[in-house]
Nucleic acid binder design. Structure first.
Lengths: 212, 212
DNA sequence: GATTTAATTAGACGTTCGGTCTAATATAGT
DNA sequence: ACTATATTAGACCGAACGTCTAATTAAATC
């Protein structure tokens, strides 16, 4: 939980060849991710993030223009981190396309379990909070979902080609359906501190796929 | 948007036979519901609610012990209001059980549209926020979902008895699946300011039901 | 090696918010 | 008339928010 800096930061311009060129900045981002996935954007104060990693406020506003800018960068980081994660699962040629989707779901469950179902999906969290967030976030969040969905869509098409699901299935719709529901499941898993909602959604989704 | 009191409130003990016996209190609750479904609990300040309805702080803390108590009451109010709404739809004997479920979904879509998809579900909103909320809310929220789900479950059993879905279907699971996903759809509809996610989830859910 | 420039930390600052508390006011009850 | 009760009014406090300026240190320049 407590990330700490290897070498305590000092004032002033840092030496050029230190190992911690972006350490403080990254430290803030990773602490921010932790807290935001747990408590959301509005409920989280900069001070809390700062305290967690023993960084003074000045540093924060040195690296980020504002809380909003910080959030925007977190979205980008998280989105691409997660996109890579999806790609890793969905490109596993040792599994059938449908099995890859299942593998992703299983992996995501394990990931939530690792944090005792206390952390959700940053994108889902922020989406829920949009009413209180800078409007600039909306498009970003929508785009992230669109991206994740398109990855799923491609995998579903592959499943179709492999005869795992009906050739008449609308893969785009199915992919959207998955992500709409999955975020609900993550939300609920956080509320219940349990894997059950994730499992129920998994079962429901795969059982509902039109057989090939 | 701006609810206003019929007669401006005055200081002092109010006359007994006024029409506004609980007006101020109700005013606060309904304004609170509006704001909380849009922005969530943490992002909303008491002051904002008070300003909206031109009520001074003294009144708030006269009627409610704390923000937490206010939230708890909102949950109860909303939960039972919504439970009645569900009951109304699911007890409509002029429709088949499955058609009643569809009617509920359609009605909920219309309700969201009425607020331009800016307001979500209070229970879902608070569930997402749990990481930053008083822990006493958790059990309440879980119970509300359990309640709503059990209503759905009963209707699904009726659908089963009517031969609309497979007799082997696990109605409890299906009901849970619905509410898990539906909350995701509401979240997403709010993010996109669109009915599309609700429709996609509706299609996906009903298409996935095991035929009778 | 003195001086300027760039990078980073330190923390003061003003504002807002949640919650408390006291006073003021008005009606009800006796 | 007097007391009790209900409600509004808003000052006040401590904590937290986001911003901003100053201080400090190393690099770069000459």
């Amino acid at each position: 939980m407590e990330i700490q800096l290897s070498i305590p930061r000092r004032r002033g311009r840092p030496p050029k060849l230190r190992e911690s060129l972006l350490e403080t900045r990254d430290l803030l981002l990773s602490a921010g991710l932790e807290v935001l996935t747990e408590k959301g954007f509005s409920a989280t104060g900069i001070d809390e993030i700062l305290r967690r990693v023993s960084v003074p406020k000045g540093s924060f506003y040195h690296y980020f223009e504002s809380k909003e800018a910080f959030g925007a960068e977190l979205i980008e980081q998280y989105a691409s981190y997660f996109a890579r994660k999806i790609d890793r699962y969905l490109s596993d040629q040792s599994l059938s396309p449908l099995a890859r989707l299942r593998a992703f779901v299983t992996g995501a469950q394990a990931a939530m379990a690792r944090h005792d179902f206390r952390r959700g999906c940053l994108i889902g969290n922020l989406g829920q909070e949009m009413g209180a967030l800078p409007e600039t976030f909306r498009a970003k969040l929508q785009q992230v979902f669109a991206d994740w969905q398109s990855k799923f869509e491609r995998c579903l098409v592959a499943a179709q080609e492999a005869g795992e699901i009906s050739p008449h299935a609308d893969c785009k719709q199915l992919a959207a359906f998955f992500w709409i529901g999955w975020e609900g499941a993550v939300l609920r898993a956080k509320l219940e501190h349990s894997a059950e909602p994730l499992k129920i959604f998994e079962r429901g989704f795969f059982a509902g796929l039109p057989p090939g």
